[in-house]
Design a protein around this nucleic acid. Structure first.
Length: 565
RNA sequence: GGGCCGGUAGCUCAGUCAGGCAGAGCGUCUGGCUUUUAACCAGAUGGUCAGGGGUUCAAUUCCCCUCCGGCCCGCCA
């Protein structure tokens, strides 16, 4: 082995993907990354002397439903891109869909073009099974609307990026192979297979003297096969035998066909393909998951320097998220999509989540989503000097918050998330607003746009309560009375309560009256409350009853307490 | 087996990289209200900084070992 990354001194600083984002000078990791990128390029001033834009890349195989974890590949880069743009640089943010990778397993769940999550029983799973081992772009779209499986899931990812309002250029790996963009890099690798073997063998034991770093798509059966028998760079062709491919526990059977294909009808193995992308696209920065940190990254550095003769990009490792404590996984179906998340919280809250320290293991907890939203609300208040911070909290908020929203607007209104969930117990939109105003969450002079956006959170909290079935998941049974029956004491007590409310009283007075009525009839206070919750929610518990009833329309409340409708 | 990242209050997280009194929000408890029913206000409570050892006047912070969660050394955010 010569000049591997491990025995040069070039690995002391910016090649360490763990160290790049952890400079104590900065309160925001993306600033530390940007510092390193500027130093590396040597064009730290912003006087317009840089010829080429700074290129930031991410990438993923379109293996199934694009879930929250995949957005690390976009959003970690997005923050770095925004910081660099602030500093006056021209930045391109790229995303490669690694869509010539092979379909290795069929996910238990898929998403159709409208983001409906569907099980395998709703598609032709058998057809998918017959396509195992073939490139994603050669597998038919299971929903029959797009050109391929790969196109379908790439398109879904792109829609989520659009929903977040991000400016990202999508690049199809398959398209790059087909249009010849990869040609010179494939030729570089295959023209000196000794060097390729030598470099890679330092990282992979299975590389032997026969190893040829190229895969071919079989012209007969479409399998992406690894058994390359000859390379002819004169004619730019590769000969292969369609042998079985082992991938983990799976074996994809080859058809045995022996054929010859163009360099454009195959692909480089991942370990070479990644550095080839860096070379082809001129990548300056790329974040990647911890899975690549100890394997693909060091070999990629070595291949970049010693096969392609380029500098590798500035790297950054991010930790994986869990979803309510479990690993995110397209194949197992434990996923949450950006589409779903945006039904639960505002985009800026989602961006806030991704602005946190990349190396911390984090759980995205839908059960406790209120905690994340509360944290964001406080962060926002720090930015607007509406709250005192500890240590460098305020400094961080001042730095990061403007990157989360289109435009900081001091007049914005945030209804606390769990209170929004309480408001969502009624579907009367004007009542929601009235209660929010009365409780002081909406100032009298609030602009219309701020009220509208604040109340949009109520719908999101409603969706959250329904999705989790939590303690806020109450629904006022307005249209029909729940099937209940009470003993005569309780019926009388409810009737007295109706009369009291008919006289017109404030919420706290009604609350008091519930207690005194219960005493009067010598019934357990809890039983009377339970009866109330049953009548209005068909549940045994609920929000503080007196104030809630006071805010509903009186005629309805009185009639319901009398069990008339 | 070898290497890497993380572990701070019941929960979600700052602080650790530059050693100097252990922090926030939520929750919980108490009061506001002679009455348990979740929204509001006030106050209080809350810790073996995963565990052990070392260096130091001083360690959550630096070093070593161990445990737990995860990753890499096949493929794959």
């Amino acid at each position: 082995m010569t000049n591997s990354v491990n025995d040069t001194d070039s690995n002391t600083g910016t090649d360490d993907p763990y160290a790049v984002a952890s400079d104590a000078e900065n309160v925001f990791w993306a600033d530390s990354v940007a510092d390193v990128i500027e130093t590396r390029r040597g064009d730290t001033n912003t006087e317009g002397n840089e010829q080429e834009p700074i290129v930031i890349k991410g990438g993923v195989s379109p293996s199934g439903i694009p879930h929250l974890g995949h957005f690390n590949e976009i959003l970690r880069g997005y923050f770095v891109a925004e910081v660099l743009r602030e500093r006056g640089h021209n930045v391109r943010q790229l995303f490669t869909s690694d869509d010539r990778d092979r379909l290795r397993a069929i996910p238990r769940q898929l998403a159709d073009s409208d983001w409906n999550i569907v099980g395998l029983d709703e598609v032709d799973a058998g057809a998918l099974g017959r396509n195992l081992g073939r490139p994603y772009t050669d597998v038919p779209d299971p929903f029959g609307t797009r050109e391929s499986y790969g196109d379908h899931f790439t398109q879904l990812l792109r829609e989520s990026v659009d929903q977040l309002g991000l400016d990202v250029e999508f690049i199809s790996n398959t398209a790059c192979y087909e249009d010849g963009s990869f040609d010179e890099y494939i030729e570089t690798v295959l023209s000196d297979t000794d060097t390729a073997r030598t470099v890679l063998s330092a990282y992979q034991d299975k590389v032997d003297d026969e190893y040829l770093p190229f895969f071919a798509i079989c012209t007969e059966c479409g399998l992406l096969t690894e058994d390359i028998t000859d390379i002819d760079l004169e004619s730019e062709t590769v000969s292969y035998r369609c042998s079985d491919v082992e991938a983990g526990d799976e074996v994809f059977s080859g058809c045995g066909h022996e054929g010859t294909i163009s360099l454009r009808d195959g692909k480089l193995p991942w370990r070479f393909e990644w550095p080839a992308q860096w070379a082809m696209l001129g990548v300056d920065f790329e974040p990647f998951g911890k899975d690549h940190a100890e394997g693909s990254w060091p070999s990629g550095v070595d291949i970049a320097e010693n096969v392609f003769d380029i500098d590798p990009p500035v790297p950054m490792v991010y930790e994986w998220f869990t979803l309510d404590g479990e690993a995110l996984s397209s194949s197992s179906g434990n996923v949450v999509t950006v589409d779903e998340v945006l039904e639960l919280l505002e985009p800026e809250v989602l961006l806030y989540f991704f602005a946190k320290e990349p190396l911390k293991q984090r759980d995205f907890s839908i059960e406790r989503l209120d905690q994340l939203v509360d944290e964001f609300d406080r962060f926002e208040e720090l930015y607007f000097d509406e709250r005192d911070g500890e240590g460098r909290e305020t400094e961080r908020a001042k730095r990061v918050y403007p990157l989360l929203v289109d435009e900081p607007r001091k007049e914005r209104i945030r209804i606390p998330y769990t209170f929004a969930a309480v408001l969502a117990m009624t579907d009367d939109v004007s009542l929601r607003e009235e209660i929010a105003r009365r409780e002081g969450h909406i100032p009298d002079d609030a602009p219309d746009w701020a009220v509208e956006e604040a109340l949009a959170r109520v719908e999101r909290a409603r969706t959250w309560a329904r999705r989790t079935g939590n303690e806020f998941d109450y629904e006022l049974k307005r249209s029909a009375i729940p099937a209940v029956s009470f003993d005569s004491d309780i019926e009388s007590a409810l009737s007295d309560l109706a009369a009291f409310i008919e006289d017109g009283h404030e919420g706290e007075a009604i609350q008091q009256e519930i207690f005194s009525t219960a005493r009067e009839y010598d019934i357990d206070v809890g039983d009377l409350f339970t009866a109330g919750y049953q009548l209005f929610f068909d549940e045994e518990q609920g929000p503080k009853l007196g104030p809630f009833l006071a805010k509903l329309d009186q005629e309805f409340v009185v009639a319901r307490l009398r069990q008339e409708r």
